[in-house]
């Protein structure tokens, strides 16, 4: 079952350490947001493969936006 990964805060995409096809463990940073001078990882809720990255570096995302999809 694919699963959406949502941003838990509003911020700007600072880094995307993963790409489609990468295996991640629960708790791994799928993307890193920057908000108010802090780097905040958006973590994988469970282990799996990254199916899709829905954002680009520098893009602003709102709390609740889907940033990536797990396989």
């Amino acid at each position: 079952m694919p699963e959406d990964i949502k941003a838990h805060i509003t911020g700007v995409v600072f880094q995307i350490p993963t790409k489609p096809g990468d295996r991640v463990a629960a708790g791994d940073a799928v993307i890193v947001l920057e908000s108010m001078k802090m780097e905040i990882p958006v973590e994988a809720p469970r282990a799996g493969a990254v199916r899709e990255i829905k954002v680009q570096e520098g893009q602003t995302v709102q709390e609740g936006d889907v940033v990536a999809v797990l396989e």
Binding site: H8, I9, T10, G11, S35, M36, M38, I40
Partner: peptide, 14 residues
Amino acid sequence: YAEDPTKGFLPSPG
């Protein structure tokens, strides 16, 4: 600060 102390002081813009 605009931060949420119940969530580890996560930023709270708005």
